[in-house]
Design a protein around this nucleic acid. Structure first.
Length: 803
DNA sequence: TTAGGGTTAG
């Protein structure tokens, strides 16, 4: 029968502190330190009636201390600890255990130090608790200090201590040290194997985890539920359903199918391996579903794009399960909202999180940053991010990704530079997020530098996502050969790798190679997805392969079961525009099963410009601008058409409209790289230090082409005679791209290609000039504009004069 | 009378 011992005979508390303990030179406990107030009701449940009568003995107090620790009353435990005689190792072990189990890791390590300082000798029981605290702190430094002491006192081969060391090293990310401990153990038990299996799973190396599990079984050790839980987690990482099903069989065979943690791990595994139906089957068999199981099922639906099912599941969780959604439920639902473009739904989840007091919560806040970033509401993403008090790597990654997704590349690069100065070490996700910004804004040499950093950190060989973005980076920086080498050198190519290399050849105008790669991808057993067709149709459009484009477009649904999306219709409209058949282009839009977007109308506008049809251009621009008020390119294109037609009043109207909208024309800027130096030229700005040299080169080129009609002069004669007196503000002679080409010609090795990058589309005049220069200098000139790379050779361009 | 490994989340 339980009895209660009321601890009433203590004086006011002595010096107790949860603060971090640093060993001082003198006795620290002689000075006043922050106090705990005496707990109001200090009660201990005890089974021995005799203890009620007697004065508490040391053993009774130990018993009381254990009761406090077991019931989680750490404050009472600490109070009691300070009051009782705690000179023996056993008492110290109890209090350190209590702190470590309560998640007070810093304090657990502090008490361990104090224990040593006060002369108590840590034993084989002490160290596992302390090592658990070091793991919790993710502190390799503390862990290594403890390991050194273990060696000194000869406890480094104790099986319990070694198991804790393995776990600690793996959790702080020192895989090699964890492996060493495991290898050097004279005796390994089931927990040693479980520690290394879960350690690999923890660091995201599912393959090694599964290899160890198999090895353990082969040497005759029977797995327990912990082995299965880690093994299933490893299958989730690798997306390996086959192994997951094998483990499921073993779970049943070994009688663990009713264990709720194993059941949840099975739901998680099936969900992450793309089998929502099996996840559902396991879920339905659970009699008393807890919040964790419901959350795992919600996550399973979301990762399989069953969004409505995920919301229904949350509804059932409340109505049938009588459970309230928690922060994790919300974290699971936000990606569903982002993928559905359900901004309002996500906002209501945000509001609900605030109302229910779930914030601040670092993971939930990061999920919100990610959600707002994906929904194009960068302002809200920034707002949530700024309010995170202790930002971690994942939150920085989410904000960088949000900037990149919203085209704010400079801001993303600035933030990426910032994190190097903080105690944050970028990981694979950081690089995968930032590389598109490098691809858009930086030079080839900067691209090579970031690639070198990634390689040095050992992130490329095993990370497909990073390898894919590196292919894209090289292609966008103009180095298609290196992009191809990276692709060929990949150990494990996924559908994104193939889509990226197909797009790389597409933007460089090598449509035939793109098509060849598409067929190679299918031969390799990779099923094309929607993005594969965006790459393929873009390549047909850019390279002017009209018949092939139609064939692949029609094959999407017929052969691959993929419904064409708005991006595919956009590619086809570009393709039709290229043929100059504006009637077909209009009909195509009218008959489209989807609502035309600004991108579609922009494509029609470009086609109208090419065919010089101002009326249709006006219609297209009106539609585009009704959907995107700030589409600067749209205003500029229309304005250029008016200027060519001599409609200067309309040019002025456009200018006024742009001012009213608060828009400014993007200043053209071209860069050329020589000996790792980047030379930047800006349209109309002749203040560049290299301008004298550029003028000399331009002069020579003009003389060499003097006998031929100048492209600009040809175009200007198309204008009305009276209009010739009008001042044209943006003369093509002052376009930065020709200056960059001229400078590149004399600053790079003779015979080598000249590579220029430009932030906006190249104009027709400059395109003509570049063609001429390539012919008279017999040099290849590559100009990467905001959409494609023009390869000028012997007076021609790969784009066939349509872009 | 104290030990190690474990479920859902960015």
């Amino acid at each position: 029968m339980a009895a209660t011992l009321l601890l009433h005979n203590f004086n006011s508390p002595r010096i107790v502190s949860l603060n971090h303990f640093e060993p001082p030179k003198t006795n620290p406990f002689a000075v006043t330190r922050p106090r705990f107030s005496k707990p109001n009701q200090l009660q201990i449940t005890h089974s021995k009636a005799s203890n009620i009568l007697a004065e508490p003995t040391h053993f009774t107090l130990i018993d009381a201390l254990c009761s406090f620790i077991d019931s989680g009353s750490i404050e009472n435990a600490l109070y009691l600890f300070e009051e009782m005689n705690h000179s023996d190792t056993f008492t110290w072990n109890i209090i350190i255990k209590g702190l470590a189990h309560k998640g007070l890791f810093k304090e657990a390590v502090s008490y361990f130090r104090r224990m040593e300082f006060e002369g108590a000798r840590p034993d084989k029981f002490t160290y596992p608790f302390v090592l658990k605290a070091c793991s919790g702190l993710l502190s390799l430094k503390e862990g290594e200090k403890v390991h050194a002491k273990l060696i000194k006192v000869g406890l480094d081969l104790d099986v319990y201590v070694c198991n804790s060391l393995i776990s600690m090293y793996m959790k702080v990310g020192c895989v090699e040290l964890g492996e060493n401990v495991f290898k050097e153990m004279p005796v390994r038990d089931l927990v040693s194997w479980n520690s290394i299996i879960s350690g690999y799973q923890f660091i995201g190396d599912g393959l090694s985890s599964l290899v160890c599990l198999r090895e353990m079984v082969l040497i005759g050790i029977r797995p327990d539920k912990f082995s299965f839980i880690s093994g299933l987690g490893a299958c989730s990482i690798e997306g390996c359903q086959r192994n997951g099903k094998e483990i499921h069989c073993q779970v049943i065979k070994n009688g663990f199918e009713m264990d709720f943690m194993v059941e949840t791990s099975l739901i998680d595994m099936y969900g992450k391996c793309g089998n929502a139906v099996y996840a559902e089957r396991v879920f339905d068999m659970i009699v008393n579903k807890n919040t964790v199981a419901w959350n795992a099922m919600v996550a399973g639906y979301v990762s399989n794009a069953c969004f409505s099912e995920s919301f229904s599941c949350v509804k059932k969780m409340q109505e049938v399960g009588k459970l309230r959604p928690d922060g994790i439920t919300m974290i699971n639902l936000l990606p569903a909202c982002a993928q559905m473009g359900a901004l309002l739904m996500g906002k209501s989840i945000h509001a609900s999180a605030i109302r229910k007091g779930f914030l601040p919560h670092i993971v939930l806040e990061t999920a919100l940053v990610d959600f707002y970033g994906r929904c194009g509401t960068l302002k809200l993403a920034k707002h949530v991010f700024m309010r995170i008090s202790e930002k971690n790597l994942a939150s920085w990654n989410a904000m960088i990704a949000a900037y990149v997704q919203n085209g704010q590349y400079s801001e993303a690069l600035d933030m990426f530079q910032d994190i190097w100065y903080k105690s944050v070490k970028p990981d694979a996700i950081t690089f995968a997020s930032i590389l598109p910004a490098y691809a858009e804004l930086t030079s080839l040499s900067e691209g090579r530098q970031i690639h070198a950093v990634i390689t040095k950190l050992g992130l490329t060989s095993s990370n497909t996502i990073i390898s894919n973005t590196i292919i894209y980076l090289y292609a966008k920086c103009g180095d298609l050969q290196t992009a191809r080498r990276c692709f060929d050198g990949m150990f494990c190519k996924d559908v994104v790798s193939w889509n990226t290399i197909i797009m790389a050849y597409a933007i460089h105008g090598f449509g035939r190679i793109s098509i060849q790669l598409f067929h190679e991808m299918i031969e390799h057993g990779i099923k094309p997805n929607k993005s594969s067709f965006v790459s393929l149709l873009s390549s047909c459009s850019i390279s002017g392969m009209v018949d092939e484009g139609w064939e692949y477009f029609n094959s999407m649904k017929r052969d691959y079961g993929i419904d064409p999306g708005i991006e595919h219709f956009g590619c086809m409209l570009d393709l039709i525009g290229r043929t100059g058949n504006l009637d077909l282009a209009k009909r195509f839009i009218e008959e489209m099963p989807l609502v035309p977007t600004a991108r579609i109308w922009g494509s029609l506008l470009a086609a109208s410009r090419k065919a010089n049809d101002i009326e249709l251009a006006e219609v297209a621009a009106k539609h585009a601008l009704s959907l995107e008020h700030d589409n600067t390119g749209c205003y500029i294109l229309l304005s250029n058409m008016y200027a060519e037609a001599g409609r200067w009043e309309d040019v002025e109207k456009i200018k006024t409209l742009m001012i009213q909208e608060g828009l400014a024309k993007t200043m053209g800027c071209s860069t050329v790289e020589t000996d790792y130096k980047i030379h930047r030229f800006v349209d109309q700005d002749r203040s560049n230090a290299q301008m004298n040299m550029v003028n000399d080169v331009m002069g020579i080129i003009s003389k060499m082409t003097a006998d031929k009609e100048d492209a600009y002069a040809h175009r200007i004669t198309k204008l009305k005679r009276t209009d010739l007196t009008r001042k044209r503000p943006n003369l093509p002679e002052n376009h930065s791209v020709r200056w960059a080409i001229s400078f590149g010609l004399i600053s790079t090795e003779l015979g080598s290609p000249v590579l220029v990058r430009k932030n906006i589309r190249i104009c027709e005049d400059c395109h003509n000039v570049a063609k001429k220069i390539s012919k008279i200098t017999k040099r290849e000139i590559i100009v990467g504009d905001s959409k494609v790379f023009h390869h000028f050779q012997d007076g021609n361009c790969f784009c066939g004069d349509y872009w």
